[in-house]
Design a protein around this nucleic acid. Sequence first.
DNA 1: CGGGTTCTGGACAGGTCAGTTCAGAACCGG
DNA 2: CCGGTTCTGAACTGACCTGTCCAGAACCCG
Lengths: 191, 191
Amino acid sequence: MARPKEFDPEHAVDAAMDVFWVGGYAATSTNDLCEGTGLARSSLYNTYKSKRDLYEQALRRYGERTRTEQAELLERHGPVREVIRDFLLRAVDAQLADPARRGCLALNAAVELGDADPAVAELTRDDFDTIVATMQALIERGQATGELGPGDARAKARLVHAALTGIHVVGRVAEDRTRLTHIVDAMVDSL
Amino acid sequence: MARPKEFDPEHAVDAAMDVFWVGGYAATSTNDLCEGTGLARSSLYNTYKSKRDLYEQALRRYGERTRTEQAELLERHGPVREVIRDFLLRAVDAQLADPARRGCLALNAAVELGDADPAVAELTRDDFDTIVATMQALIERGQATGELGPGDARAKARLVHAALTGIHVVGRVAEDRTRLTHIVDAMVDSL
DNA sequence: CGGGTTCTGGACAGGTCAGTTCAGAACCGG
DNA sequence: CCGGTTCTGAACTGACCTGTCCAGAACCCG
């Protein structure tokens, strides 16, 4: 029918995701996106409506990806406390292993654009709610077996999520591991 | 000696702080700052070196201000659990009362610029450390009286700080109170 | 009131921004 | 190999960006 694209649009979203992830939304220029994706300006605007649109797609893809990863980690078998500890420690290690300390793209988006962009707010809110729901199910499992004490499982799940945000935020400016592992230790101890 | 400034440079920093607080660093233009402070371009650049310099001063002032406020709240007498609950609830109420959901300026700065700006990273890290130290002292007081159980007080303090970051981050996109009070409830229960 | 200093408004400069346009290249089916 | 469609590179647009500059106004002190 016609000349095919010389690139994979989905792969380009992945590349754009990385670019936004490092620099945030406002500080990332369309030129940065061209370089990061390898696309020419016209190809980029021919495929995506705007910088804003591409950002939303990247955010959506990030949500799908992390949803899967987190579900895998949280639906493991074994002692609930250990599952949660491993889950949080993985965030710690990821943060410290990343030279750019990018943290969580959804969190970064919520903080940078939360109040100014309803679509972004909704997307990140959904991301947050999903992990809270998964965490709640895990905690309820621990309560059913008697491993964990009683109490509002949803509230506890939200506290664990807050601990995760703490890791991502503090990890953005902290270079030592203790500032982050303390959060994990205190969180797991208090379940 | 000469003509005096028609404005108070300190008050202007306060005004600039509010402007940055709403829009973040990158998305705030020098024009926005002129409008927000009421200064003309030349006065602004005559008084502060650059947009970046003004941002740093605003951030520093924010740190001083919140340090004082937080110390007042956390050094109150009474049951430690109640002091911490009131402290966290105040953050919840402030967040929900603010139509722009600005959250915490230091946190926003850490997330937006953390990895790209060493000076900002250091400033926010200091802010975080200060509140953690104050919180640790409070928790140790509770442990001394037997009100709180044993355990690493600094680690617990860091978890409380993580809970606070959770309130600020989630509060930026959540409109209902429960998402935030759950964090407070679970946090205070688990001390 | 006058000399010296500082402040202020507005115009200006050069660069970068997001997004558009278009001519020509690349591809496909027939 | 050709007609029709789509993609791509590069130039372009107009707006906005940060920061500078300067002429004149405002002020203080003697």
